[in-house]
Amino acid sequence: SIEEEIKKAEEAKEKGKTFIHGDFVATTEELLDELLKRLRKKL
């Protein structure tokens, strides 16, 4: 679910890890923020 993806992305951000969502690879905090923004729009 979208909620689960958001939670996983937030955890990755806290730990400074890379998060992959489909073909979107978030390797930096900026990219994770962008991904979180996109996911929240889908809610």
Rank of each mutant, 00 (worst) to 15 (best):
S1L: 11
S1T: 12
S1R: 11
S1F: 11
S1W: 15
S1D: 11
S1A: 10
S1N: 10
S1Y: 12
I2D: 03
I2K: 03
I2P: 03
I2A: 04
I2W: 08
E3Y: 11
E3P: 05
E3L: 14
E3M: 13
E3H: 09
E3D: 07
E3W: 14
E3R: 10
E3G: 06
E4R: 08
E4P: 04
E4W: 11
E4Y: 08
E4S: 09
E4L: 10
E4K: 07
E4F: 07
E5R: 09
E5G: 06
E5L: 15
E5Y: 14
E5H: 09
E5Q: 14
E5D: 11
I6K: 02
I6R: 03
I6N: 02
I6L: 08
I6H: 02
I6F: 01
K7W: 07
K7C: 13
K7N: 07
K7A: 12
K7P: 02
K7I: 07
K8Q: 11
K8E: 04
K8T: 03
K8H: 06
K8V: 02
K8W: 07
A9D: 02
A9Q: 02
A9E: 01
A9H: 01
A9S: 02
A9I: 14
A9W: 06
E10K: 08
E10H: 06
E10F: 08
E10A: 05
E10M: 13
E10N: 07
E10D: 03
E10P: 02
E11S: 06
E11L: 09
E11W: 10
E11C: 14
E11H: 06
E11P: 02
E11A: 10
E11F: 06
A12I: 04
A12P: 01
A12W: 03
A12S: 04
A12F: 03
K13M: 07
K13P: 01
K13D: 03
K13I: 05
K13Y: 08
K13W: 09
K13F: 06
E14D: 09
E14P: 02
E14F: 12
E14T: 12
E14C: 15
E14I: 13
E14W: 12
E14A: 14
K15T: 12
K15V: 03
K15H: 12
K15F: 10
K15I: 04
G16K: 12
G16Y: 09
G16M: 03
K17C: 15
K17F: 15
K17A: 11
T18V: 13
T18R: 09
T18D: 07
F19Q: 03
F19G: 04
F19D: 03
F19K: 05
F19W: 07
F19E: 02
F19I: 06
F19Y: 13
F19T: 04
F19R: 04
I20M: 07
I20Q: 11
I20W: 09
I20T: 11
I20K: 07
I20L: 05
H21A: 06
H21C: 15
H21M: 08
H21R: 05
H21V: 08
H21T: 07
G22V: 09
G22Q: 06
G22T: 05
G22Y: 11
G22I: 13
G22S: 05
G22C: 15
G22M: 09
G22F: 09
D23P: 07
D23C: 15
D23E: 10
D23G: 10
D23V: 13
D23R: 04
D23N: 13
F24V: 04
F24A: 01
F24I: 08
F24Q: 03
F24P: 01
F24L: 07
F24Y: 07
V25T: 06
V25P: 03
V25Y: 11
V25G: 03
V25W: 13
V25H: 12
V25D: 04
V25I: 13
V25N: 07
V25M: 10
A26E: 01
A26S: 03
A26L: 08
A26W: 11
A26K: 01
A26H: 01
A26I: 11
T27Y: 14
T27N: 15
T28Y: 07
T28E: 03
T28R: 01
T28Q: 01
T28M: 12
T28V: 10
T28F: 12
T28C: 15
E29Q: 13
E29F: 13
E29D: 10
E29N: 11
E29T: 14
E29P: 15
E30C: 14
E30N: 05
E30I: 07
E30A: 13
E30D: 10
L31D: 14
L31A: 11
L32S: 00
L32Y: 11
L32P: 00
L32H: 01
L32C: 02
L32A: 01
D33G: 05
D33H: 08
D33A: 11
D33R: 13
D33V: 10
E34S: 05
E34A: 10
E34R: 10
E34G: 04
E34F: 13
E34V: 06
L35C: 13
L35A: 01
L35K: 00
L35W: 05
L35V: 03
L35N: 00
L36Q: 00
L36K: 00
L36M: 03
L36W: 05
K37L: 14
K37T: 11
K37I: 09
K37D: 07
K37H: 08
R38F: 15
R38N: 05
R38Y: 15
R38C: 15
R38I: 14
R38H: 14
R38M: 15
R38S: 05
R38E: 06
R38G: 01
R38P: 00
R38K: 08
L39Q: 00
L39F: 05
L39M: 07
L39H: 00
R40A: 01
R40Y: 14
R40C: 12
R40T: 01
R40K: 04
R40Q: 01
K41R: 14
K41E: 10
K41H: 10
K41N: 09
K41L: 13
K41A: 14
K41T: 08
K42C: 15
K42I: 14
K42M: 15
K42A: 13
L43Q: 05
L43I: 04
L43G: 01
L43M: 05
L43W: 08
L43F: 08
